[in-house]
Design a protein around this nucleic acid. Structure first.
Length: 196
DNA sequence: TGCAAACCATAAC
DNA sequence: GTTATGGTTTGCA
């Protein structure tokens, strides 16, 4: 049985789907209904789910973590995400994107080079990301540093990146499964945005 | 700039 | 099996 919880933290609704204390999916939105329907859509469709009005202790811990992620004050650390039911490729993309640090962005193409496949395939995974914002899909942008797309709308994506701005200057490499991924400071995206 | 074509994993039929 | 669909990229006019 999948347990679904939701909670409002300073104006934003967060939701999680849990199974045996592992996260099956998470979401956020300004509307509670949207969070819930979003979540139901993303969870394993075969299993039954139940929506609870009061968060469990464990769910509350997660919500605190989610809101820190949302504010840009925490890194996507090691929460137990249940993704074994997802296609292998999807899992690889999600794990790779989870490695992009706060304050940096990577392009769809760069991620594709890292895990195989092509940029559109990466975009597809992002579009169906079950673990927002734990897997920071907002940190994946187009190769020309324009935003690309975002499930909740581009404004949400931009706001997110603004909050995460750290003042980094240089691009750097991060490591994933022995390979390198080149990530750029968020500022690169923002300066591209201010042009219009 | 703008457009067309290639790209490739998924989900839906 | 086959097809349609992208949160892309690249090249070329």
């Amino acid at each position: 049985m999948i347990k679904i919880y939701s909670k409002n933290i300073s104006g934003t609704w967060f939701g999680v789907g849990l199974q045996d204390d592992k996260i099956l999916g998470s979401a956020f939105d300004v509307s509670q209904n949207k969070v819930l329907s979003n979540l139901q859509k993303k969870l394993k469709s075969n299993a039954e789910s139940q929506v609870y009005s009061q968060p469990s202790d464990f769910a509350n811990q997660l919500f605190d973590f989610l809101s820190e992620l949302f504010l840009g004050t925490s890194s996507p650390s090691s929460v137990d995400m249940e993704m074994r039911h997802l296609p292998i490729y999807t899992q690889r993309v999600l794990k790779a994107v989870a490695c992009i640090p706060v304050g940096y962005v990577a392009s769809y193409g760069a991620v594709a080079e890292l895990v195989g496949g092509n940029p559109r395939a990466v975009g597809n995974v992002m579009a169906n990301n079950p673990f927002v914002p734990i897997v920071p899909c907002h940190r994946v942008v187009k190769s020309d540093f324009s935003l690309g797309g975002y499930g909740g709308g581009l404004k949400i994506k931009l706001d997110y990146l603004l909050r995460e701005k750290q003042g980094f200057q240089e691009a750097k490499n991060i490591e994933f499964e022995g390979k390198q991924l080149l990530v750029y400071p968020v500022e690169r995206v923002l300066s591209a945005c201010y042009l219009f």
